[in-house]
Nucleic acid binder design. Structure first.
Length: 264
DNA sequence: ATCTATTCCTGGCTGC
DNA sequence: TGCAGCCAGGAATAGA
């Protein structure tokens, strides 16, 4: 599922085609994708120029002239340049140099557009790759919940999802149920480093393609081959050899090594 | 305020 | 082979 690294790769692959382009028309094929009001979304977007295309958390954000368009791929959404339309095509953006498709089997993906930045984007926490370890530690201290739930909260930190939270906690040797505010400065710093490391490596590998993810050109990522615990319940921990456990935390499948990651 | 449970959605998998 | 039933989960929403 697209998390920060996947969305970053989508944006990088599409940016050359999108920036400076004018949206001539938008066709919405799924009412859900447009948040219930396809007509006004199309009306707003038609004729506007995309000044820049960038990522914010897990959102793909177009700065328009004027206004904003934000796209969230959720679980199975794909943004594809000049692909063929199919039964799962939910929206078609006609642009100067081609067309951009939003495909999504499960109809969770959403498109927002308006003169103001959508509220959900405005309320996002800081970017993990732009935050210092000290700032990260400070934010952690203010939280009461379990570390996994806190890291999944987009208002705390923008862009982490289930895969990269499990992978970062394993690298930092922190148990997913550890209360966030109890991490020592040293361990919080280690977690910050693990987050930066895993996200950077994942971006370099083109993201994780587990089932649906591909970038804007249809290319799969390779980082799923480097997952150490995510999706590996029952397998040997690559660090110590103990069997990776799978539990539920915050209604999410959670993978961790019971030997390397101990509650403290 | 803060945390937890539910809902949305459907392809793929499991088990009978 | 067929099919019912369950599972995956990001974020909005409702409930505690």
């Amino acid at each position: 599922m697209p998390e920060l690294p996947e969305v970053e790769c989508v944006v990088r692959s599409l940016r050359p085609w999108l920036e400076g382009s004018r949206i001539s028309a938008v066709e919405i094929r799924s009412r859900l994708a447009a948040g219930g009001d396809p007509a006004s979304l199309c009306r707003f977007l038609a004729g506007r120029r995309i000044a820049s295309a960038r990522r914010r958390g897990k959102f793909i954000l177009f700065e328009l002239a004027p206004g904003f368009c934000a796209i969230h791929l959720r679980m199975t959404g794909r943004l594809l340049w000049n692909g063929g339309t199919g039964p799962y095509t939910r929206a078609v953006f006609e642009l100067d140099r081609g067309r951009l498709l939003l495909d999504d089997v499960r109809q969770f993906a959403r498109i927002y557009a308006g003169l103001d930045l959508p509220e959900t984007v405005a309320k996002l926490g800081p970017e993990p790759l732009e935050l210092t370890a000290a700032e990260f530690r400070g934010r952690l201290l203010a939280r009461r919940g379990r570390i996994k739930a806190v890291l999944l909260d987009q208002r705390f930190l923008a862009g982490l999802g289930n895969i990269y939270v499990d992978e970062a906690l394993h690298r930092a040797r922190i148990h997913p149920l550890q209360p966030a505010g109890t991490l020592t400065a040293r361990r919080a710093e280690g977690l910050h480093g693990a987050i930066v490391e895993v996200l950077s490596e994942a971006i370099a590998a083109g993201g994780s393609s587990i089932s649906d993810y591909v970038d804007g050109m249809g290319a799969r990522g390779a980082f799923q081959l480097q997952h150490r615990v995510y999706g590996r319940g029952g397998e040997a921990c690559p660090r110590c050899g103990a069997a990776v456990r799978r539990i539920a935390v915050a209604q999410r499948g959670t993978h961790f090594c019971p030997r390397c990651q101990r509650l403290q």
